[in-house]
Design a protein around this nucleic acid. Structure first.
Length: 553
DNA sequence: AACTCACTCAACCGCGTGAAC
DNA sequence: GGTTCACGCGGTTGAGTGAGT
């Protein structure tokens, strides 16, 4: 690959020198009658150097001014593309690893052709997290915790260092290959399930309303949706000028959407422009019910739900930690053209077609609106600027006096709970991790990122190739580890689905790692929220460490 | 050696969106 | 409210490469 890249570079140069008028005349380009036509075609090393220098001096953005200030005769678009796809220092070079390949497939199943989102890099994710002042408004330390934890999780979730172009090219090549081989993008049995679901009247509308024809759906119904308070956020209207809709919605309603609908990404931390997020988030939150409650019971509910379905719902899980070579088995070979389970807004029947197919947007991708109801910018995200302002501002007394503790945020609790469960699983080798998929054999790599498969489980949207939640998916597919071969990956073997950690087990795990009992903790440092109004909530750094995947002392 | 084919990769193009005016 | 601009995203194209015949 690298040799190819080098060769390409050389070829680019030679070709450019050979074919490009601009190159023939150096970076000054071909001046024609005093007019400098914008150069097209491959970039030369000189141009690259100029662009790099420009970005170093002026930063990214304002690409149209590159030509003015740097003397490059390239349009802004071209400059941006070149920088984003080739010159950015954080790019990961080389061919995709099998894990990355699997992740791409998984992400595509979740997102559809959202290449840029897949390629979201960590830096952006962290920035976006700053927008999540939903739960951190009153505690900067918690903000730090969340950012750390989520950062780590997301590092394993998305495809840092990869460009949308790379991913897109890979996917197109892959689909082409499968198409030619007459293989489905996703395993037939998954498609059949989707067909069955559809046949049973599992159209998206019903799913949205929480109909539980599907066993997985029914499972989710067994857990009370954790009620998470968002109302306190309204205390900062200046920072969240468009938060009205959001605050009318409890997290539970969101979770109902996210889980009940099993839409796309679960809480995939948004990686798109804040403005765009806002756009989508409006769609998400408007009209959701506003039931609100708080308290520890909700955390219990959350943990219940967590083990039932909701593990990844807070974007803290990564499907990447486990052996994702399995993924392909749990994807669905559907004919994208038949949009039934590909597109949630289609009522057409889902015909499982496992053969040559039209591969455009094969996703399980639901309509943008639906998908975003939980997945994308599943929260109304304020601008980075406002988030910065917020971060710089100390917690308000009003916020605290509102009775909202960090615990009630739900998100944080989920983070911590997950970490505790993970920690427990590490300490107890015989004990499976907290996630069903792990129990199903997905947890061979007892990585913190294992929890992320649950995200897939959660996200396995009903529009997904599977047309059903991933728990059944995983239960039906036996991993073929290490295989990045599409053909090979279609070896599917049914397995029982009865290995899901029970609610009771989940509680046990939690209780065994009672974070409120310092005596049971490992001489750890405690995170005590500086917020004096909520000093009754302590969080153990070990929890975070576990979540972050770091080895505990 | 010549040719075909599949594949990879880089780059371009069209379009949508938000912000600024 | 309309227009312009900047930006980003997804789709598409074309060149280069290597394997197979």
């Amino acid at each position: 690959m690298s040799s190819m890249m080098n060769g390409t570079e050389d070829n680019m140069w030679s070709k450019d020198r050979r074919d490009s008028p601009a190159a023939d005349e150096g970076i000054d380009g071909g001046m024609v009658g005093g007019i400098s036509p914008l150069k097209k075609g491959p970039w030369t090393s000189v141009e690259d150097a100029i662009l790099i220098d420009y970005v170093k001096k002026h930063g990214e953005g304002n690409w149209n001014s590159v030509q003015k200030h740097s003397g490059l005769f390239r349009c802004g678009k071209s400059c941006r593309l070149r920088w984003a796809n080739h010159l950015r220092p954080d790019l990961k070079k080389g061919s995709f690893t099998p894990e990355e390949e699997n992740r791409i497939i998984q992400l595509h199943a979740n997102m559809g052709n959202k290449w840029a989102r897949m390629a979201a890099e960590v830096g952006n994710l962290i920035s976006d997290l700053k927008n999540y002042n939903l739960v951190i408004e009153y505690n900067l330390e918690l903000l730090f915790l969340i950012i750390l934890a989520t950062h780590k999780a997301l590092c394993g979730r998305l495809l840092p260092g990869r460009t949308d172009n790379e991913i897109k090219n890979y996917w197109n090549t892959r689909t082409k290959r499968l198409q030619r081989a007459g293989l489905p993008l996703y395993p037939p049995e998954v498609c059949l399930q989707g067909y069955k679901m559809n046949k049973d009247g599992q159209n998206m509308g019903k799913l949205q309303t929480g109909d539980a024809h599907d066993p997985d759906m029914m499972l989710t119904e067994h857990f009370k949706i954790p009620e998470v308070e968002f109302k306190t956020l309204a205390l900062n209207p200046g920072v969240l000028p468009y938060s009205t809709d959001l605050f009318d919605a409890s997290a539970s309603s969101v979770l109902k959407q996210g889980v009940g609908l099993s839409y796309g990404q679960g809480l995939v931390i948004p990686t798109i422009h804040p403005a765009k997020r806002f756009r989508e988030s409006q769609t998400i939150f408007t009209g959701l019910d506003g039931s609100v409650s708080t308290g520890i019971s909700e955390f219990d509910q959350l943990t219940d739900y967590h083990h039932g379905k909701i593990t990844g719902n807070f974007g803290l899980s990564s499907p990447y930690g486990c052996d994702l070579s399995n993924y392909e088995q749990s994807s669905c070979g559907v004919l994208p053209g038949s949009n039934a389970i590909l597109n949630g807004n289609s009522s057409s029947s889902c015909e499982p077609i496992c053969g040559a197919m039209k591969l455009e947007l094969p996703s399980l991708q639901c309509s943008e609106t639906q998908q975003d109801s939980w997945g994308t910018p599943a929260s109304p995200l304020p601008s980075l600027e406002s988030a910065d302002a917020l971060i710089q501002s100390p917690p308000t007394k009003e916020t605290n006096s509102d009775g909202q503790s960090p615990r009630s945020s739900g998100l944080l609790e989920a983070v911590l709970y997950e970490s505790r469960a993970l920690k427990h699983s590490k300490k107890s080798p015989g004990h499976q991790t907290s996630d069903a998929f792990v129990a199903n054999g997905w947890g061979a790599h007892s990585s913190p990122m294992n929890v992320c498969t649950a995200e897939w489980e959660l996200h396995a949207d009903l529009n997904s190739p599977s047309g059903h939640s991933a728990s059944s998916l995983f239960s039906e597919c036996t991993p073929i580890s290490g295989s990045s071969s599409d053909e090979q990956a279609y070896n599917v073997r049914p397995e029982p689905i009865d290995q899901v950690l029970s609610y009771v087990e989940a509680r046990e795990v939690l209780h065994q790692t009672d974070c409120n009992r310092p005596d049971v903790l490992l001489g750890s440092t405690w995170f005590a929220p500086s917020n004096k109004y909520h000093n009754d909530h302590f969080f153990q750094t070990d929890d975070v460490a576990a979540l972050l995947g770091g080895d505990q002392p």
